[in-house]
């Protein structure tokens, strides 16, 4: 199976481990992710103003690129790209006048017809591959590993862009189960990490990180799996301040790659206060490495 893929800017810079482990793991599952030959930044945050079409150009231009590639689905794994692209897509699918305005403005592109579906990688794993198939391909079951599935906000909010009913987050739990680990439910699975408040109001993010790590720990988790590079960064970077609350943070695609026996690109988290390797090593899931918490 071949699917159009938009990694997003962060996956090419700070979160290369997310991009590389995604492509490796999907390859092992027989899904070829074909990166769009041309793409631009999605805009990161969906613009709330109804008439602010200027900020819908970037996401819709990417949808034109997916349409050019003949793809019916455009896959993303960054939660932010997913949310922004999916909502822009819904906006133009539901408002033909807005789509017309954008198509007229982008007069050098072919018209976007509104036929592309934006999907998150978890949806591909659930709907196109299937949990059982994934379980069948596991080479290295992650047994005895208790993983808190942290969804953050943007996979479930708003409801029309959610990957599943927001009051019943389970896709990531199901994946964790399929790869042989133990998913841990905890109260803050969909609590916001503080997101881009990290820039202007870092104390919000520190408090949120403390709350999320505390409830994950109290629920018995040993590590946290995430899909969003900003969640990852917030939950990780603030751990330097949080002493005994420390807990490894890992992209779910890295766990998936590890279980499938392909490169999980874990070495890319050098100098990481939430490095997952010492834990994985102590469980015999990876070979000995020299990683320590910094």
């Amino acid at each position: 199976m071949k699917l159009s893929y938009l990694p997003g800017c962060t996956l090419k810079t700070k979160a290369q481990d997310l991009d590389l482990s995604t492509v490796a793991a999907m390859g092992a599952l027989g899904v070829e992710l074909e990166e769009l030959p041309r793409w631009n930044c999605c805009g990161t945050v969906f613009s709330f103003a109804d008439d602010d079409l200027m900020h819908q150009i970037a996401p819709v231009r990417n949808l034109v690129r997916a349409q050019e590639q003949g793809g019916e689905q455009l896959v993303t794994v960054c939660s932010f790209c997913f949310n922004t692209l999916k909502r822009a897509n819904l906006l133009v699918k539901e408002n033909s006048d807005k789509l017309d305005t954008l198509n007229t403005f982008m007069d050098e592109e072919e018209d976007y017809k509104g036929n592309v579906n934006v999907v998150h990688l978890l949806e591909v794993l659930r709907d196109e591959v299937g949990w059982e198939q994934i379980a069948g391909k596991v080479q290295n079951p992650l047994k005895d590993l208790k993983v808190a599935a942290y969804y953050g906000c943007t996979l479930h909010r708003p409801i029309e862009a959610a990957i599943e009913p927001p009051n019943k987050p389970e896709a990531l739990n199901d994946l964790i189960k399929a790869i042989g680990a133990t998913p841990v439910d905890f109260p803050d699975m969909t609590t916001c990490c503080g997101s881009y408040q990290a820039v202007a109001n870092p104390e919000i993010v520190i408090n949120r990180t403390r709350e999320i790590l505390t409830s994950a720990r109290e629920s018995g988790a040993e590590m946290i799996a995430v899909s969003c590079p900003l969640c990852e960064c917030n939950l990780k970077e603030n751990q330097k301040e949080l002493g005994e609350l420390r807990m490894p943070v890992i992209y779910f695609t890295q766990l998936l790659a590890l279980a499938l026996g392909v490169d999980s690109h874990l070495h890319q988290c050098e100098q990481n206060p939430a490095d997952a390797r010492p834990l994985l090593e102590s469980k015999g899931l990876i070979d000995a490495c020299s990683a320590t918490y910094i």
């Binding site: 041309r38 793409w39 631009n40 930044c41 805009g43 200027m54 900020h55 150009i57 970037a58 231009r61 403005f105 982008m106 050098e108």
Partner: peptide, 22 residues
Amino acid sequence: CVACNACSKICPMDVPVMDVIA
């Protein structure tokens, strides 16, 4: 940058400016 592409359209040297910024 909002990916308006006005830059690439105006460039007399056909530099894909929007893509370069991307």
